[in-house]
């Protein structure tokens, strides 16, 4: 049982075309490129990008949590008369509320991105293919998650084809 079959291409256009055809043939595919290629994620089967929702959730949690913390401490837990101001002096709670909103939203975005991507990860079967190091330099790779895909990939005229051991 192997991880899949890996094919190497020279340009993002060739990779897009190959991914399109593999997708049309009904294969489960993964595509690798040294920089983001527009449209590739949709072709490889990404239906929804949930990062914006995660960031929004983080921002709401940070904002509400930050304001609640100040209200609770200033009104309930530790009420203290400061310059005759009301205990719930909301305009002065805004700066900290803003900062906690941004902080939690940003951290949620980063943690969410890494978690959805399954990172950090110490090893991956693809790193067993020596040529794969070019995926972070100048080459574009298509991986078909099926053992019988070699003849299909050969028709796409890649620069090279490798079996990826599990």
């Amino acid at each position: 049982m192997s991880y899949g079959i890996l094919a190497e291409f020279k340009s993002p256009e060739r990779l897009l075309e190959a991914a399109n055809r593999a997708r049309a043939a009904g294969y489960a595919i993964e595509a690798y490129s040294p920089f983001p290629v527009e449209g590739l994620a949709e072709i490889t089967g990404m239906r929804r990008n949930s990062i914006p929702a995660i960031v929004l959730g983080g921002g709401l949690a940070g904002g509400i949590g930050g304001y609640f913390m100040q209200w609770y401490s200033a009104v309930i837990s530790y009420p203290i008369n400061s310059g005759g101001k009301p205990l719930h002096s909301w305009p002065e709670f805004i700066p900290v509320t803003f900062e906690t909103t941004v902080l939690v939203a940003a951290l949620a975005g980063v943690v969410g991105m890494l978690a959805l991507n399954g990172l950090p990860r110490l090893h991956h079967p693809l790193f067993n293919v020596p040529e794969f190091h070019l995926a972070s330099r100048n080459r574009f790779f298509l991986c078909i998650r099926a053992d019988d895909a070699r003849p299909f990939l050969e028709k796409l005229e890649p620069v090279g084809i490798w079996d990826v051991p599990e």
Binding site: S33, V37, A41, L114, N117, P120, L122, A135
Partner: peptide, 14 residues
Amino acid sequence: LGWRGEARHWARFE
């Protein structure tokens, strides 16, 4: 962190 430049990773990253 084990980055390999997968298309869906790039989309979330961007």
